[in-house]
Protein backbone atom coordinates (compact mmCIF):
# COMPACT_ATOMS: atom_id res chain seq x y z
CA UNK A 1 0.00 0.00 0.00
CA UNK A 2 1.21 3.49 -0.83
CA UNK A 3 2.29 5.80 1.98
CA UNK A 4 1.46 8.73 -0.25
CA UNK A 5 -1.46 11.09 0.02
CA UNK A 6 -3.54 13.07 -2.49
CA UNK A 7 -5.10 16.48 -1.88
CA UNK A 8 -7.77 17.51 -4.40
CA UNK A 9 -8.70 21.17 -4.71
CA UNK A 10 -11.95 21.62 -6.60
CA UNK A 11 -14.13 24.70 -7.03
CA UNK A 12 -17.61 23.19 -7.47
CA UNK A 13 -19.46 20.37 -5.77
CA UNK A 14 -20.65 19.14 -9.16
CA UNK A 15 -17.00 18.83 -10.32
CA UNK A 16 -16.17 16.85 -7.19
CA UNK A 17 -19.19 14.54 -7.09
CA UNK A 18 -17.82 11.75 -9.32
CA UNK A 19 -14.47 11.77 -7.56
CA UNK A 20 -16.03 11.62 -4.13
CA UNK A 21 -18.09 8.60 -5.17
CA UNK A 22 -15.36 6.84 -7.10
CA UNK A 23 -12.69 7.28 -4.43
CA UNK A 24 -15.10 6.58 -1.57
CA UNK A 25 -14.62 9.81 0.30
CA UNK A 26 -16.99 11.11 2.93
CA UNK A 27 -17.74 14.58 4.25
CA UNK A 28 -15.78 15.46 7.36
CA UNK A 29 -18.21 16.03 10.17
CA UNK A 30 -18.22 19.19 12.26
CA UNK A 31 -18.01 22.85 11.56
CA UNK A 32 -15.43 23.25 8.81
CA UNK A 33 -14.72 26.44 6.87
CA UNK A 34 -15.02 24.61 3.55
CA UNK A 35 -16.60 21.25 2.76
CA UNK A 36 -13.77 18.76 3.27
CA UNK A 37 -13.96 15.14 2.16
CA UNK A 38 -11.53 12.35 2.94
CA UNK A 39 -11.36 8.58 2.54
CA UNK A 40 -11.31 5.98 5.27
CA UNK A 41 -7.51 5.67 5.22
CA UNK A 42 -7.14 9.44 5.42
CA UNK A 43 -4.71 9.39 2.51
CA UNK A 44 -7.01 11.17 0.08
CA UNK A 45 -8.51 14.57 0.85
CA UNK A 46 -10.69 16.93 -1.11
CA UNK A 47 -11.76 20.50 -0.53
CA UNK A 48 -14.60 22.26 -2.33
CA UNK A 49 -13.46 25.85 -2.41
CA UNK A 50 -16.09 27.70 -4.41
CA UNK A 51 -15.37 29.63 -7.59
CA UNK A 52 -12.71 32.33 -7.89
CA UNK A 53 -9.27 33.26 -6.70
CA UNK A 54 -9.99 34.24 -3.13
CA UNK A 55 -11.94 31.08 -2.53
CA UNK A 56 -9.29 28.82 -3.97
CA UNK A 57 -6.56 30.60 -2.00
CA UNK A 58 -8.43 30.20 1.28
CA UNK A 59 -9.48 26.63 0.47
CA UNK A 60 -5.92 25.52 -0.28
CA UNK A 61 -4.59 27.07 2.92
CA UNK A 62 -7.39 25.49 4.92
CA UNK A 63 -6.81 21.99 3.54
CA UNK A 64 -3.06 22.45 3.98
CA UNK A 65 -3.56 23.13 7.67
CA UNK A 66 -6.05 20.29 8.14
CA UNK A 67 -4.43 17.39 6.28
CA UNK A 68 -1.69 15.83 8.43
CA UNK A 69 0.28 14.78 5.33
CA UNK A 70 -0.14 18.00 3.38
CA UNK A 71 3.60 18.66 3.08
CA UNK A 72 4.26 15.42 1.26
CA UNK A 73 0.91 15.10 -0.51
CA UNK A 74 0.37 15.26 -4.24
CA UNK A 75 -1.86 18.29 -4.88
CA UNK A 76 -4.28 18.40 -7.77
CA UNK A 77 -6.43 21.29 -8.89
CA UNK A 78 -9.13 19.76 -10.99
CA UNK A 79 -12.11 21.34 -12.64
CA UNK A 80 -13.77 22.61 -15.76
CA UNK A 81 -12.38 25.36 -17.96
CA UNK A 82 -13.30 27.28 -21.03
CA UNK A 83 -11.13 26.94 -24.10
CA UNK A 84 -10.54 28.37 -27.52
CA UNK A 85 -12.51 26.58 -30.20
CA UNK A 86 -9.36 24.99 -31.64
CA UNK A 87 -7.87 23.82 -28.37
CA UNK A 88 -10.07 20.78 -27.89
CA UNK A 89 -13.52 19.30 -27.66
CA UNK A 90 -16.04 19.57 -24.90
CA UNK A 91 -15.20 17.00 -22.22
CA UNK A 92 -11.58 16.68 -23.27
CA UNK A 93 -9.17 16.61 -20.30
CA UNK A 94 -5.84 18.46 -20.28
CA UNK A 95 -2.79 18.40 -18.04
CA UNK A 96 -1.68 22.01 -17.73
CA UNK A 97 1.95 22.63 -18.66
CA UNK A 98 1.98 26.42 -18.50
CA UNK A 99 0.06 28.69 -16.14
CA UNK A 100 -0.49 32.36 -16.79
CA UNK A 101 -2.53 35.02 -15.06
CA UNK A 102 -4.35 37.87 -16.67
CA UNK A 103 -3.10 40.39 -14.09
CA UNK A 104 0.33 39.02 -13.18
CA UNK A 105 3.44 38.53 -15.29
CA UNK A 106 4.63 35.46 -13.40
CA UNK A 107 4.40 32.29 -15.51
CA UNK A 108 4.57 28.84 -13.99
CA UNK A 109 5.63 25.68 -15.79
CA UNK A 110 4.32 22.75 -13.76
CA UNK A 111 6.24 19.49 -13.72
CA UNK A 112 5.06 17.28 -16.58
CA UNK A 113 3.99 13.90 -15.32
CA UNK A 114 5.30 11.29 -17.72
CA UNK A 115 3.31 8.56 -19.42
CA UNK A 116 -0.09 10.08 -18.77
CA UNK A 117 -2.40 9.85 -21.74
CA UNK A 118 -3.44 13.44 -21.25
CA UNK A 119 -2.86 16.21 -23.72
CA UNK A 120 -0.96 19.22 -22.43
CA UNK A 121 -2.09 22.82 -22.74
CA UNK A 122 -1.64 26.30 -21.36
CA UNK A 123 -4.13 27.70 -18.88
CA UNK A 124 -4.76 31.35 -18.16
CA UNK A 125 -6.55 32.43 -15.01
CA UNK A 126 -8.88 35.43 -15.04
CA UNK A 127 -10.76 37.38 -12.39
CA UNK A 128 -14.02 37.14 -14.27
CA UNK A 129 -15.75 34.54 -16.46
CA UNK A 130 -14.60 34.73 -20.07
CA UNK A 131 -16.41 34.21 -23.34
CA UNK A 132 -13.73 34.86 -25.93
CA UNK A 133 -13.33 31.55 -27.71
CA UNK A 134 -10.80 32.72 -30.26
CA UNK A 135 -7.96 31.99 -27.86
CA UNK A 136 -5.43 29.18 -28.22
CA UNK A 137 -5.48 28.13 -24.58
CA UNK A 138 -7.73 27.11 -21.71
CA UNK A 139 -9.05 29.64 -19.23
CA UNK A 140 -10.44 29.44 -15.73
CA UNK A 141 -10.69 31.40 -12.48
CA UNK A 142 -8.51 29.35 -10.11
CA UNK A 143 -5.59 27.41 -11.65
CA UNK A 144 -2.77 29.97 -11.44
CA UNK A 145 -3.69 31.02 -7.90
CA UNK A 146 -3.80 27.40 -6.76
CA UNK A 147 -0.32 26.76 -8.15
CA UNK A 148 1.04 30.04 -6.87
CA UNK A 149 0.11 29.12 -3.30
CA UNK A 150 0.94 25.42 -3.28
CA UNK A 151 4.41 25.84 -4.86
CA UNK A 152 5.40 27.99 -1.92
CA UNK A 153 4.60 25.18 0.47
CA UNK A 154 5.64 21.97 -1.23
CA UNK A 155 7.94 20.65 -3.90
CA UNK A 156 6.76 21.51 -7.43
CA UNK A 157 6.86 17.95 -8.71
CA UNK A 158 3.92 17.20 -6.42
CA UNK A 159 1.54 19.70 -8.01
CA UNK A 160 -0.72 19.20 -11.00
CA UNK A 161 -3.49 21.18 -12.62
CA UNK A 162 -5.97 19.22 -14.72
CA UNK A 163 -8.87 20.81 -16.55
CA UNK A 164 -11.70 19.44 -18.64
CA UNK A 165 -13.10 21.66 -21.36
CA UNK A 166 -16.64 22.65 -20.46
CA UNK A 167 -17.26 25.31 -23.11
CA UNK A 168 -15.53 26.35 -26.29
CA UNK A 169 -18.21 28.51 -27.93
CA UNK A 170 -20.99 30.88 -26.83
CA UNK A 171 -23.52 28.13 -27.55
CA UNK A 172 -21.80 25.47 -25.46
CA UNK A 173 -21.66 27.65 -22.37
CA UNK A 174 -25.46 27.58 -22.24
CA UNK A 175 -25.54 23.84 -21.76
CA UNK A 176 -23.34 23.82 -18.64
CA UNK A 177 -25.28 22.59 -15.64
CA UNK A 178 -24.63 20.28 -12.68
CA UNK A 179 -25.69 17.11 -14.45
CA UNK A 180 -23.74 17.95 -17.57
CA UNK A 181 -20.55 18.57 -15.58
CA UNK A 182 -21.01 15.47 -13.50
CA UNK A 183 -21.55 13.32 -16.57
CA UNK A 184 -18.52 14.33 -18.54
CA UNK A 185 -16.27 14.14 -15.52
CA UNK A 186 -17.56 10.64 -14.86
CA UNK A 187 -16.72 9.75 -18.47
CA UNK A 188 -13.13 10.84 -17.97
CA UNK A 189 -12.56 9.33 -14.56
CA UNK A 190 -10.02 6.81 -15.89
CA UNK A 191 -7.64 9.66 -16.73
CA UNK A 192 -7.94 10.95 -13.21
CA UNK A 193 -7.32 7.47 -11.84
CA UNK A 194 -4.02 7.27 -13.72
CA UNK A 195 -3.03 10.72 -12.54
CA UNK A 196 -3.97 9.79 -9.00
CA UNK A 197 -1.90 6.57 -9.10
CA UNK A 198 1.08 8.53 -10.28
CA UNK A 199 0.47 11.15 -7.63
CA UNK A 200 0.42 8.50 -4.94
CA UNK A 201 3.74 7.10 -6.11
CA UNK A 202 5.46 10.52 -6.11
CA UNK A 203 3.98 11.42 -2.76
CA UNK A 204 5.16 8.07 -1.45
CA UNK A 205 8.73 8.91 -2.53
CA UNK A 206 8.57 12.25 -0.78
CA UNK A 207 7.03 10.75 2.37
CA UNK A 208 9.76 8.14 2.48
CA UNK A 209 12.43 10.81 2.10
CA UNK A 210 11.03 13.02 4.82
CA UNK A 211 9.83 10.42 7.27
CA UNK A 212 11.20 10.39 10.75
CA UNK A 213 13.04 7.32 11.92
CA UNK A 214 10.74 4.96 13.79
CA UNK A 215 12.94 5.07 16.89
CA UNK A 216 13.19 8.84 17.01
CA UNK A 217 9.98 9.40 18.95
CA UNK A 218 10.59 6.46 21.29
CA UNK A 219 14.05 7.71 22.20
CA UNK A 220 13.20 11.39 22.53
CA UNK A 221 10.13 10.61 24.63
CA UNK A 222 12.25 8.64 27.05
CA UNK A 223 15.09 11.15 27.40
CA UNK A 224 15.39 14.88 27.05
CA UNK A 225 17.19 15.92 23.87
CA UNK A 226 17.99 19.55 23.08
CA UNK A 227 17.15 20.84 19.59
CA UNK A 228 20.68 20.31 18.29
CA UNK A 229 20.85 16.87 19.93
CA UNK A 230 17.60 15.97 18.13
CA UNK A 231 19.18 16.90 14.80
CA UNK A 232 22.24 14.83 15.64
CA UNK A 233 20.07 11.89 16.67
CA UNK A 234 18.09 12.03 13.42
CA UNK A 235 21.32 11.95 11.45
CA UNK A 236 22.83 9.12 13.51
CA UNK A 237 19.66 7.02 13.30
CA UNK A 238 19.69 7.00 9.52
CA UNK A 239 23.41 6.33 9.38
CA UNK A 240 22.94 3.54 11.89
CA UNK A 241 20.34 1.89 9.66
CA UNK A 242 22.54 2.17 6.60
CA UNK A 243 25.68 0.91 8.30
CA UNK A 244 24.28 -1.62 10.77
CA UNK A 245 21.10 -3.01 9.21
CA UNK A 246 21.31 -6.10 11.38
CA UNK A 247 22.08 -4.48 14.72
CA UNK A 248 19.25 -3.54 17.06
CA UNK A 249 20.02 -0.08 18.32
CA UNK A 250 17.28 -0.22 20.91
CA UNK A 251 18.75 -3.19 22.70
CA UNK A 252 22.26 -1.75 22.51
CA UNK A 253 21.26 1.49 24.21
CA UNK A 254 18.79 0.12 26.72
CA UNK A 255 21.16 0.63 29.66
CA UNK A 256 22.09 4.17 28.72
CA UNK A 257 20.18 6.85 30.54
CA UNK A 258 20.68 10.23 28.96
CA UNK A 259 20.83 11.89 25.57
CA UNK A 260 24.54 12.52 25.69
CA UNK A 261 25.51 8.93 26.41
CA UNK A 262 23.21 7.67 23.64
CA UNK A 263 24.70 10.09 21.14
CA UNK A 264 28.25 9.31 22.28
CA UNK A 265 27.61 5.60 21.91
CA UNK A 266 26.17 5.97 18.42
CA UNK A 267 28.90 8.34 17.32
CA UNK A 268 31.64 6.06 18.53
CA UNK A 269 30.09 3.02 16.83
CA UNK A 270 29.68 4.88 13.56
CA UNK A 271 33.14 6.38 13.74
CA UNK A 272 34.84 3.02 14.04
CA UNK A 273 32.82 1.38 11.33
CA UNK A 274 34.33 0.95 7.90
CA UNK A 275 31.93 0.85 4.98
CA UNK A 276 31.67 -2.51 3.31
CA UNK A 277 31.47 -2.07 -0.45
CA UNK A 278 31.54 -5.71 -1.52
Amino acid sequence: MSNGCICWVIALASEAKSLIEEFKMYLMPGDTLFPIYKNKNENEWLVITGVGQLNVASGVSYLYSLCPYSKTSFWINFGIAGAGKNVGDIGEPFLINELRHHDFKKIYYPFILPNLKLKNAMLKTYNKPQNNYKRSFLFDMEGWVFYNIVQKKITRELIAVVKIISDNSPETILSINKNFINKFIKDKIEYLMTLRDFGFSLSDLETERKKEHFLFVDITEKFHFTFSQCQQLKNFLIRWDVNFPERSLFSEIKDLNDAKSILDYMESSLKHHKLKWE
Binding site: I107, Y109, F111, R209
Partner: peptide, 22 residues
Protein backbone atom coordinates in the same frame (compact mmCIF):
# COMPACT_ATOMS: atom_id res chain seq x y z
CA UNK B 1 5.68 19.20 -28.29
CA UNK B 2 8.12 21.78 -26.97
CA UNK B 3 7.16 24.54 -24.60
CA UNK B 4 8.65 27.91 -25.44
CA UNK B 5 9.95 29.97 -22.55
CA UNK B 6 11.59 33.36 -22.15
CA UNK B 7 14.59 32.22 -20.16
CA UNK B 8 15.76 28.85 -18.97
CA UNK B 9 15.72 30.03 -15.38
CA UNK B 10 11.93 30.15 -15.46
CA UNK B 11 11.97 26.35 -15.39
CA UNK B 12 15.42 25.43 -14.12
CA UNK B 13 16.64 25.62 -10.55
CA UNK B 14 13.54 27.17 -9.06
CA UNK B 15 12.92 27.00 -5.34
CA UNK B 16 11.03 23.98 -4.08
CA UNK B 17 12.09 21.55 -6.75
CA UNK B 18 12.97 17.96 -5.97
CA UNK B 19 16.22 16.88 -7.59
CA UNK B 20 15.54 13.16 -6.99
CA UNK B 21 12.10 13.15 -8.62
CA UNK B 22 13.37 15.20 -11.55
Amino acid sequence: TPIYIDKYASVFNKKNQNFRIQ
